[in-house]
Design a protein around this nucleic acid. Structure first.
Lengths: 196, 196
DNA sequence: GTCTATATACCGATAGAC
DNA sequence: GTCTATCGGTATATAGAC
């Protein structure tokens, strides 16, 4: 079977949109969102900047395409949280769902936590809801009588789950199942250090 | 006693360098490092951009001046860590020292964790050592036989301590002493969730 | 120490040919 | 779908007057 494209176009032309997406994630994580120019992304893919605009209408839309799957999961979680029973089982369920979202969208999540301010500001106008998702989850985890200590513990528990985003660097040999089990246990221990 | 300066210069002229420093921290935290222009900082202080260059030779040097006190503390901690006994008391000492550095340099720390990628990249050439300080501390906390589980727990414990950087937002009423006690207990619980 | 004016470079984005 | 060429804007940084 003969190729339908000339040799020079095989690499760039096969699935350019996905190649742009992947190169953008890699460069945004390595260099930062604002510090990465569309020209660098185009170079990494092997095309020019105007060709990139054929696939994504703007740099912001490219960013939104990267983070949307993660934000959708977090939004869904924050909306269903009110129906969960506020007991030990419920807390474990919420933390595990959050943790699995981090593992599933590891690249996008790492990009977000390492460039939190610029990225949140960039998308805040379009998605005001997602800015509050973390606060909703934290308040729920803190319980109906949120003392400062409980609020700090809730933040600590959620913060632990973001370690999943860099687990490949911290513990390259750990499978995702081990990462999930380990971090979930650690988060629960941080949330209720005295085992109450 | 008459003022030595005209009224128009009182605000900007009294301690311009510190005013630039403080305005820069505030804007870098709110908008991001690259997203904040020197013109915005100058406007916030009430001077022009060339006047800013009289006090700081470049935007990068301004950034370095902000984060240096924190980096010095972290470097010192990572260098003295080898002399600490690797027992429960030693781990508590290390975690508490790290946590107190976060509380002491809260503004610079919040700026760093929320703009980690751009800032680390910006100073990595000049300070290759500090990039490894976190890894040194993590490896020490994981102990002499660092299994993946222990490495993940060590990362989790350190991650908790960064909650101190946003404690004023999470729990505005909590004094620093309460923040320190609460997060230190949570970190130790995450590091050894089974109480070993 | 602060200013006006400017040099130089790169950014995101677009026009239009092929 | 990809290209060459370019627009309009803004960035860091500097020169030189006061």
């Amino acid at each position: 079977m003969a190729n339908r494209r000339s040799a020079a176009h095989v690499t760039a032309g096969r699935d350019t949109k996905k190649a742009i997406h992947d190169a953008a994630v890699r460069l945004f994580v390595a260099k930062g969102f604002e510090e990465t120019s569309l020209r660098e992304i185009a170079d990494a893919v092997g095309i020019t900047k105007p060709s990139l605009y054929y696939h994504y209408p703007s740099k912001l839309e490219l960013l939104v395409a990267i983070i949307n799957p993660l934000l959708d999961d977090l939004k869904a979680l924050s909306e269903q949280v009110a129906e969960i029973a506020p007991d030990a089982d419920g807390r474990r369920t919420i933390l595990r769902t959050y943790l699995r979202a981090m593992i599933r969208h590891r690249d996008a999540g790492e990009m977000m936590v390492r460039n939190a301010v610029p990225i949140v500001n960039a998308v805040a106008d379009q998605f005001p809801v997602v800015v509050d998702a973390n606060k909703t989850l934290r308040d729920w985890l803190a319980g109906p009588d949120p003392t400062p200590v409980r609020l700090l513990r809730a933040s600590a528990a959620m913060e632990i789950l973001t370690v999943a985003l860099v687990s490949k660097e911290v513990a390259p040999d750990a499978e995702d199942d081990l990462v999930e089990t380990t971090l979930l246990d650690a988060a629960i221990a941080a949330l209720r250090p005295d085992g109450e």
